[in-house]
Measured scan of single mutants.
Amino acid sequence: VPQRAWTVEQLRSEQLPKKDIIKFLQEHGSDSFLAEHKLLGNIKNVAKTANKDHLVTAYNHLFETKRFK
């Protein structure tokens, strides 16, 4: 089981690129989880459509539901 890579403050910070969060989610989330949160596909394309709040919610949801690969 992966550990949380970032704190809530870090997740919301401008310093953390959306692409980093997407990469983490794609590496650790199950396909059904990723599909549900519309996070499947090319990281660049996902970054265009997903806002930061959406990614933070998905990140927290992944750990709450433990839907890891």
Rank of each mutant, 00 (worst) to 15 (best):
V1W: 15
V1L: 14
V1F: 12
P2H: 05
P2G: 03
P2Y: 04
P2L: 05
Q3N: 11
Q3P: 08
Q3A: 10
Q3G: 06
Q3F: 09
R4C: 10
R4T: 05
R4Y: 07
R4A: 08
A5N: 15
A5D: 15
A5C: 15
A5F: 12
A5K: 15
W6C: 08
W6N: 04
W6V: 03
T7S: 09
T7L: 04
T7H: 04
T7A: 04
V8H: 09
V8N: 15
V8K: 06
V8G: 07
V8P: 13
V8L: 11
V8W: 06
E9P: 04
E9I: 03
E9R: 02
E9F: 03
E9H: 04
E9L: 04
Q10D: 15
Q10G: 04
Q10P: 02
Q10T: 05
Q10A: 06
L11Y: 02
L11D: 01
L11H: 03
L11P: 02
R12W: 15
R12H: 14
R12G: 07
R12C: 15
S13V: 02
S13G: 05
S13I: 03
S13C: 05
S13Q: 06
E14I: 09
E14D: 14
E14A: 15
E14M: 08
Q15G: 11
Q15E: 13
Q15T: 11
Q15L: 11
L16G: 01
L16A: 06
L16N: 03
L16P: 06
L16R: 04
L16Q: 02
L16D: 01
L16V: 15
P17V: 10
P17I: 06
P17C: 09
P17D: 15
P17S: 09
K18H: 07
K18F: 05
K18A: 13
K18C: 14
K18N: 10
K18S: 13
K19C: 13
K19S: 14
K19T: 14
K19N: 12
D20E: 13
D20G: 05
D20N: 09
I21F: 02
I21R: 00
I21Q: 01
I21L: 05
I21N: 00
I22Y: 03
I22V: 12
I22L: 09
I22C: 02
I22Q: 02
I22H: 01
K23Y: 07
K23A: 12
K23R: 10
K23C: 09
K23F: 07
F24M: 03
F24Y: 11
F24H: 03
F24T: 02
L25M: 07
L25Q: 00
L25P: 00
L25F: 04
L25I: 07
L25Y: 00
L25T: 00
L25V: 02
L25A: 00
Q26I: 10
Q26R: 13
Q26E: 02
Q26D: 01
E27P: 00
E27A: 10
H28Y: 12
H28T: 07
H28L: 05
G29S: 09
G29Y: 01
G29V: 01
S30E: 11
S30P: 04
D31F: 13
D31L: 13
D31S: 12
D31Q: 12
D31A: 13
D31W: 15
D31I: 14
S32P: 07
S32W: 07
S32Y: 08
S32H: 07
S32E: 15
S32C: 12
S32R: 12
F33V: 00
F33C: 01
F33Q: 00
F33W: 08
L34P: 00
L34W: 00
L34K: 04
L34T: 01
L34D: 00
L34Q: 04
A35P: 01
A35W: 12
A35K: 12
A35D: 10
A35M: 13
A35F: 14
E36I: 08
E36V: 08
E36S: 08
E36A: 07
E36W: 08
H37G: 02
H37V: 06
H37T: 05
K38V: 07
K38H: 13
K38E: 11
L39K: 00
L39V: 05
L39Q: 00
L39P: 00
L39G: 00
L40G: 08
L40W: 10
L40C: 12
G41V: 03
G41N: 05
G41K: 06
G41C: 05
G41S: 05
G41Y: 03
G41I: 02
N42F: 10
I43A: 09
I43R: 08
I43F: 07
I43H: 08
K44F: 12
K44A: 15
K44W: 12
K44I: 12
K44H: 15
N45H: 15
N45E: 13
N45T: 14
N45A: 13
N45L: 15
V46D: 03
V46Y: 04
V46M: 07
V46F: 04
V46G: 03
V46I: 12
A47K: 12
A47C: 11
A47H: 08
A47Q: 13
A47W: 06
K48D: 13
K48V: 11
K48T: 13
K48G: 09
K48N: 11
T49S: 08
T49M: 14
T49Y: 14
A50L: 13
A50H: 12
A50M: 12
A50R: 07
A50I: 14
N51E: 12
N51M: 08
N51K: 09
N51R: 07
N51P: 10
N51A: 10
K52F: 06
K52G: 03
K52I: 05
K52M: 05
D53R: 06
D53E: 14
D53P: 07
D53Q: 07
D53I: 06
D53N: 10
H54A: 13
H54K: 13
H54T: 11
H54Q: 12
H54W: 11
L55Q: 00
L55W: 03
L55M: 04
L55F: 07
L55P: 00
L55Y: 02
L55I: 08
V56N: 03
V56R: 03
V56S: 06
V56D: 02
T57A: 12
T57P: 03
T57C: 12
T57F: 13
A58M: 07
A58S: 07
A58T: 06
Y59N: 01
Y59S: 01
Y59M: 03
Y59D: 00
Y59G: 01
Y59K: 01
N60G: 08
N60F: 11
N60D: 11
N60W: 06
N60C: 11
H61N: 15
H61Y: 11
H61I: 11
H61K: 10
H61D: 15
H61G: 10
H61C: 14
H61A: 13
H61W: 09
H61M: 15
L62M: 08
L62Q: 00
L62F: 04
L62V: 02
L62E: 00
L62H: 01
F63A: 01
F63D: 01
F63R: 01
E64R: 07
E64H: 07
E64P: 01
E64N: 07
E64C: 08
T65G: 11
T65M: 13
T65C: 14
T65I: 03
T65K: 10
K66C: 11
K66E: 09
R67N: 12
R67P: 04
R67Y: 06
R67C: 11
F68V: 02
F68L: 02
F68N: 02
F68Y: 07
F68H: 03
K69Q: 07
K69W: 06
K69A: 10
K69V: 06
K69N: 10
K69P: 07
K69F: 05
